[in-house]
Amino acid sequence: MKVNKIFVEENLQGHESVSRFCESFPKAELHIIDQYENYFQKVKKPYLQKHNNNSIFLAEKRGNLVKAAPDAYGLSGEPHYYYIHAYNCMYECQYCYLQGYFQSPDLVFFLNHEDIVESIRRTYSEHPEGRMWFHAGEFSDSLALSHLSKELPIYFRAFQELPRAYLELRTKSANTKELEKLDPLENIIVSFSFSSHTAAKKYDLKTASISARIQAMYRLYTKGYRLALHLDPIIDSPNLFSDYQQALKELFEKIPANYFSYISLGVVRFTKDVFEQTARNYPESDMLAANFVKSFDNKVRYSKPLRDKILYNMRDMILRMGITKEKIYLCMED
């Protein structure tokens, strides 16, 4: 990743993460600023600027630090929340919803993790009974730059004291270095977005390859981490099922299928804005060579019959591979 500028809020100048980021991107210009909000998204920057012209903001998150997740976010029937530790991502998945969400691809890393943890604790105490979920990575990849942001120990310490709360770290990276330094916890689950070798190569630009993700999962498995899989978003292709079967077979040869705590399935979908943005950013992508329609919740999706066919067959395939029914959920589907 090419970083041209690093912006640091003035009250964070002495923060240890600042020097780590500066050392990792020695060519980047350093700017000391008052508040990131005065610069981030102040001008519209094209999404594809991330190819060669990135800025990083090291800032403090103000306002809401923990938010309720949309319906159908995870295993149903339990409250789901996400916390915001970063905006934007160093990867470039062609379907990424961030391309229509922010007006700039610049990366923002929030360094006030203790405040975020405090907010998580407060939310926890508002639900005195039952399990609840917290997700990292709603606006970013949870692990991709964790060796620079180094926030994981703070969350591990916090979740050790919140036994009813589950933390999901979702990633497409193979950057497990920081996790390997920590002891796994029963209530922290590392989930990997997973697809076929071909699909990841074509659509998950700059992310870890499927083989690297399998290796990363294996490392965590041997350490005793709980793992989950997201087969989401699934993009239709001529050899869709055999390609997925091949990749899953490679994975389940290393880690027993039923070791995974849950598997989500979701077919590619976009808001109207993201769909338009995707078509502008990747006009040649064969991901767009399909019959997209406005679906039940106004999102742009494949036609209902194609969605059903994909989900049904995918579900059937993973059931046959040894995953139990209760562990499968359909993401954002009616």
Binding site: S303, K304, P305, L306
Partner: peptide, 13 residues
């Protein structure tokens, strides 16, 4: 052409 693009939709229809 529409049928070629999304045959499932047409079979379903």
């Amino acid at each position: 052409m529409e049928e070629a693009l999304d045959p499932d939709f047409f079979t379903f229809k």
